[in-house]
Design a protein around this nucleic acid. Sequence first.
DNA 1: CCGAATCCGGCATGATACTG
DNA 2: CAGTATCATGCCGGATTCGG
Lengths: 217, 217
Amino acid sequence: MKRSYNQYCGLAAALDVLGERWTLLLLRDLLLGPKRFKDLLDGLPGIGTGLLSHRLKELETAGVITKATLPPPAGSTVYQLTSDGESLRPVLLGLTRWGMTRLGEPSANHYIDAEALALAVAARFNPAAADDADGRYQLTIDGRPFRLDITDDHIDVRVGPTDRPRVSITADTGTLIALTNGTRTLADSLAEGTITLDGDPEAVMHLARAFDLAPPS
Amino acid sequence: MKRSYNQYCGLAAALDVLGERWTLLLLRDLLLGPKRFKDLLDGLPGIGTGLLSHRLKELETAGVITKATLPPPAGSTVYQLTSDGESLRPVLLGLTRWGMTRLGEPSANHYIDAEALALAVAARFNPAAADDADGRYQLTIDGRPFRLDITDDHIDVRVGPTDRPRVSITADTGTLIALTNGTRTLADSLAEGTITLDGDPEAVMHLARAFDLAPPS
DNA sequence: CCGAATCCGGCATGATACTG
DNA sequence: CAGTATCATGCCGGATTCGG
């Protein structure tokens, strides 16, 4: 018998499913695309195989994720969000935004991951400033490609390359951290060459604005 | 030494503060206004006094809540959200909305509370349909008054009466549950007299629309 | 009565070893 | 690679107690 708050309250019902340790971080990893057991294990340092297995089963039972088998030749089993799980995206980005304000400088025992930074970029997206920002973008962090899809006032991030992106952004984790917490400006990073923006200058400007960054020159 | 995910990720940082058992439900109760220790204890059936005390201290240290002493003659100490805690409101409403879809009919072991229902009403608020809905409203659930303040695309709920509300809504918990999960319509409940709406008919219509309810006749 | 500390049984978690 | 099994530890839930 599963532990429950037993309250007739939406938040309590949500936490009965999502409130256990590791659960929301696990879903965060799935926001960027389907993952194998091993991928999830690597993205959640400290979780044991037993607990991960347990959480995956709970979430599958709750209808938040599904297990799928990749088509040949891969054939590996992966976990992915259902549409119900997918609908948590804005909520998780909201919580991420809240938590980002209390992340200072990274410290020695901080596990740093390109995926978390891709999500941080998405969390910084400001719908109110996103005029003319619609389109597909590529974000490459430490050589790992992500797709950014902006439509209307909504943003989507996924692992994987983009074909013919409107702008292609390339940076390393250190630069993105400095950028998202305001230690360094976009202009500085461009001048240092630690970030590059390839694409129509007009599009670059709209993009910078959509993330509340001072547009370059 | 406090347990931490040790990830340089906004979500992980948020969960380091908010992710322990009871924490988000505790903040939910504070969303409706300052509370005494006893009030919180009553709103969280199953939590022990020790654990509640512990959570309050953690949240105070994290700067999410503060302890305050009410002016005489009350003089009681209450806990309340800081502005940082207050900024969790949209996130908590988002999670509440997500969880509400998995609340079916209330069962015997469900703890039912007027405050949770007031929050459920707020979570149903649809900014996109809230034209001309700005104003102060009173919502009375089982005799307990709440204030609903709508401005622009934002809604605020608090415990307490409203002076000169634009509309005054009165209902019991059962009716509100049936209404929020779609078992009964607004028109039905009005006909039965289990809900009453006092105020300018025009305002009533705008209000119903803002909560995605079919407007009465 | 309110706010909080303490003790204790039971369950959740985390680490490691092991199997298909 | 994808999990299951096992065990030590620590967190949680309940009761009791204690000071204001």
